[in-house]
Amino acid sequence: MTTLTAACAVFAIVILLIILSYIAVRGITSINLEFLVDTPKPVGEGGGIGNAIVGSVMMTLLATLIGLPIGIGAGVYMAEFGNNWFGSTVRFISDTLIGIPSIIIGIFIYTLVVLPMGRQSGLAGGLALAIIMIPIVARTTEEMIRLVPNSMREAALALGAPQWRVIWNIVLPAASAGIATGVMLAIARISGETAPLLFTALNSRFYNYFFDQPMSSLTVQIYNYATGPFDIEHNMAWAATLILVGLILTINIAVRYLTRKRF
């Protein structure tokens, strides 16, 4: 039996290595500086992913700015005041929201933001990513805060500190490393999302620094290049993938390295 179960593990690792080596080999041959700063051009004239990188960074930043305070706030609430029906409901809804297909979030933002505004925009894309981020950050924050020993709270309360001071100055700093790693993983997750951006942020062929205009992203650009008819587009898809996966794996491995003592 051990042979059989070990074979399953080996199979998964082999798949991972095959995927990563394809990305590395096919991606590295198409990457150059021009590709990294140029905008998409008609086939045959080169072109690159500069505007897509800018768009992805801008929308991820917007999502983080919105998602972080709400997610951390909700996580603190669930951990510190959440032992009642309201806390359990928020916890349950957060967990189910995490499992909802991201394309559904895209539809929701389309009806809420794109239809009233009359056009796709970076704002809509950022909001969609924020909604994906909030429950993930909330649940990680809750878990990390629950790890802070009660004796620390009691010691601070005994010194006369009000409860908000205890949470703000004692509990949150104690849990901050854990929360930070959770946030990093959430950022890695949303930077790989494509489906919620397809019809919220749409795409753009130009550098765009305004959130009220359609915005390009790495992932949507990969999708367009991958499904295009020309080989040169496919090469660009692999190159853009190398950038994206390199970033995401770096975050995952860094988080793993920083938290290695706890696992």
């Binding site: 998964a12 991972l16 995927i19 790989g192 999302e193 494509t194 999708y223 991958a226 995401i248 794996l249």
Partner: peptide, 15 residues
């Protein structure tokens, strides 16, 4: 390494 499989974005699996 098995967990890393889950970190790869969907669009990359598609490609």
């Amino acid at each position: 390494m098995v967990e890393l499989l889950a970190a790869i974005p969907s669009v990359v699996y598609g490609l």
